[in-house]
Design a protein around this nucleic acid. Structure first.
Lengths: 134, 134
DNA sequence: CCATCAGGAGGCTATTATGGCTTTAGATTC
DNA sequence: GAATCTAAAGCCATAATAGCCTCCTGATGG
C-alpha cells in the first residue's frame, strides 16, 4: 500500500534487467542489488504475473523484461507489486466506503480523488524509458 | 520513508484544516477522519515543527494552517512527516553509500537519482491549493 | 490562583511489512 | 528417464509501522 520498499526494489530490478541481454535469476539480481533474495523473488513473481517481466525456469532461467521500457510505466509497476489497490493513497479504511457512511468525510472525498488522480497520472506517464534515457 | 500512512493522514488533515476557520484540536480531527488520535497527534506535531501548521495550546486550542495553501507543497509535507530523508525512494541501505562500495550498484545510481528528481519535482510542484481548487 | 483544556513527549502493544527458509513444479541437459 | 537448475508458492520469524495510553507542560478563562 502507498509506496513501499517493494516498489523500490521492483524499479531497481527493472533498471538492472533493462541492461541485461539475457534472463537474470533472482539470486544474481539480489546479489547485485544487495537485497533479500526471497523478498525480491516475490516481487519479481508479481511483476511476471502482470506481464511486465517474463520468467524462464530451468538452466539459465531467470527474469527478463516482457515489454519495451517505454511500455512499462511506474503506475503499473507499483500496483502490480503492491497487490491490492493501485492506489498510492488508499485512504483510511472508513474513507474508502465513503459514499455510504461518515458524512463528515464525504466532503473531502472529491479532493482525495483529485489528488489520487494527479498522482496516478504522473506515475502512469513515467516510464522505465524516461528513467533510462540520457 | 517512502510514502507511509503518515503522509496520507497529513494530507487529509491539511485538507480539513484548510476548510476550518478556527483551530481544530487533534481529537476532533481524528474523529472527523476516523483515524488514530495519538498517531495523528504526532503527525500534526511534526507539521507544526516544520511551520506548516500553527499550534495553539489551552482552551479552544488546536492546529491551523500556518501558510496559504499555495505555499504548502506535498514534498515539504511528506518530508516533514517522514522525519528522516525527504526521499521517496531512499533506496536499499547499501545503495545510499554507493559512491564508495558495491561497484555493481553504482552503475544504476544515476538512474535512481533521476527518478528521485522527477518525483521530488512533481511533489514540490503539487500544492495544497492544487488539490483544493475547482 | 485554580481548574480546565489541548499540545508535547514517551513508553507499550498490535498490526503489517520485510526477509528467511523449505517444498513443489516446470524446464533443460545429458 | 535422471539429474539439475530455477521459478513458484507456501509458512514462519523478525523488524518497522500504526495505534493506544499516560503523564507532563503551557495556555486560557474564571
Amino acid at each position: 500500500m502507498l509506496i513501499t520498499r517493494a516498489s523500490e526494489y521492483a524499479i531497481l530490478s527493472l533498471i538492472v534487467l533493462s541492461k541485461a541481454n539475457s534472463p537474470m535469476d533472482s539470486e544474481t539480481l539480489s546479489r547485485e542489488l544487495s537485497i533479500s533474495k526471497s523478498f525480491l523473488a516475490k516481487i519479481l513473481q508479481a511483476l511476471a504475473k502482470s506481464n511486465i517481466l517474463k520468467s524462464y525456469k530451468g538452466v539459465n532461467g531467470g527474469f527478463s523484461l516482457a515489454l519495451h521500457p517505454r511500455e512499462i510505466n511506474m503506475l503499473n509497476v507499483m500496483s502490480s507489486v503492491e497487490g491490492k489497490a493501485p492506489a498510492v493513497f488508499d485512504c483510511a479504511p472508513s474513507i474508502n466506503n465513503c459514499p455510504s457512511e461518515k458524512a463528515n468525510i464525504c466532503s473531502i472525498w472529491p479532493f482525495l480523488n483529485k489528488l489520487q488522480g494527479k498522482i496516478d497520472t504522473f506515475l502512469a506517464d513515467l516510464t522505465l524509458a524516461d528513467i533510462l534515457e540520457e
